[in-house]
C-alpha cells in the first residue's frame, strides 16, 4: 500500500479522530487526504510525535486520538513505545507507516526492521495488528480498539503529498479552534 492510501484509511475509518502526524511522509499524507483539516501536524522534532500524542490523549479523554508515525520517527523515539505500554490511554491508537526508510532525511534505509507490532505485542496491554493493504488497515482499525498499535506495511514508496514544513502557529491555532471551539484554548 502507499502512504496516502494508509492515511486515507485512517481518516475515513475514524473521521472524528484527532490525528497527530510525525514529520515527513505522515504529515504530508495527512495534509493530502484530510485537505489540511485541523490536526496536530509535526514539522520537526523527530521522535516526539508519540509522546506528544500520549499527552494529548491523556488531556482529552473524550477525544479519539490517532498517532500516525513513520517507522523512522518511531525508531528515533522508541522509548515512547514503552511509555505507551505503561499508561495505555484508552483513546489512543498508533498507526506505524512501515516502509523501512527515513524518507524526510533523504531516503536512507533503516538499519533494522522495526517490527513495531511485534514489539508492542511483547510489551503487553496494547492491541496490535499488521495490515498489508488499505482495506486490511481499515478493518484492523475497526476491530482492534484502543489502546492499540497497527503496523501498516508500505510497499510503494512515493512521496505522498504537500510539504510537511507546516506553520506551527497556524497548526496550533486551528487545532485549538477545533478542540475548544474558540480562537485559543491553551489557558
Amino acid at each position: 500500500m502507499r502512504m496516502a492510501d494508509a492515511v486515507r484509511a485512517v481518516v475515513e475509518t475514524l473521521p472524528e479522530a484527532v490525528c497527530v502526524s510525525a514529520l515527513g511522509t505522515a504529515t504530508s499524507a495527512l495534509r493530502l487526504v484530510s485537505d489540511d483539516a485541523p490536526h496536530l501536524y509535526f514539522g520537526g522534532a523527530m521522535g516526539c510525535a508519540l509522546p506528544g500524542a500520549l499527552g494529548l490523549a491523556e488531556a482529552r479523554p473524550e477525544s479519539q486520538i490517532v498517532a500516525i508515525l513513520g517507522d523512522g520517527d518511531l525508531l528515533m523515539g522508541a522509548t515512547a513505545l514503552w511509555s505507551f505500554a505503561a499508561y495505555r490511554p484508552p483513546n489512543l491508537r498508533v498507526v506505524v507507516l512501515a516502509d523501512g526508510y527515513y524518507s524526510i532525511t533523504g531516503g536512507q534505509q533503516l538499519a533494522v526492521t522495526l517490527n513495531a507490532a511485534s514489539v508492542a505485542d511483547a510489551l503487553g496491554g496494547i492491541g496490535t495488528g499488521r495490515a498489508e493493504s488499505a482495506g486490511e488497515l481499515a478493518k484492523a482499525l475497526s476491530e482492534i480498539g484502543p489502546p492499540c498499535l497497527i503496523e501498516a506495511v508500505i510497499d510503494e514508496r512515493t512521496w505522498p503529498g504537500p510539504s510537511p514544513f507546516v506553520d506551527p502557529m497556524t497548526v496550533r491555532a486551528r487545532l485549538a479552534s477545533r478542540l475548544f471551539d474558540e480562537d485559543h484554548g491553551m489557558g
Binding site: 522534532a45 509522546p51 500524542a53 499527552g55 491523556e58 488531556a59 522509548t79 515512547a80 514503552w82 511509555s83
Partner: peptide, 26 residues
C-alpha cells in the same frame, strides 16, 4: 497529581506539549 515517569527528557517535553495542546496543565 497524576505522575508520569518517562524515560527521556524529550519525551517529557513532548508529552507536556501534547497536554498543553489538549488544555491540560502539566
Amino acid at each position: 497529581v497524576v505522575m508520569r515517569s518517562l524515560p527521556r527528557e524529550e519525551e517529557c517535553i513532548a508529552y507536556a506539549c501534547g497536554q498543553r495542546i489538549g488544555g491540560g496543565r502539566p
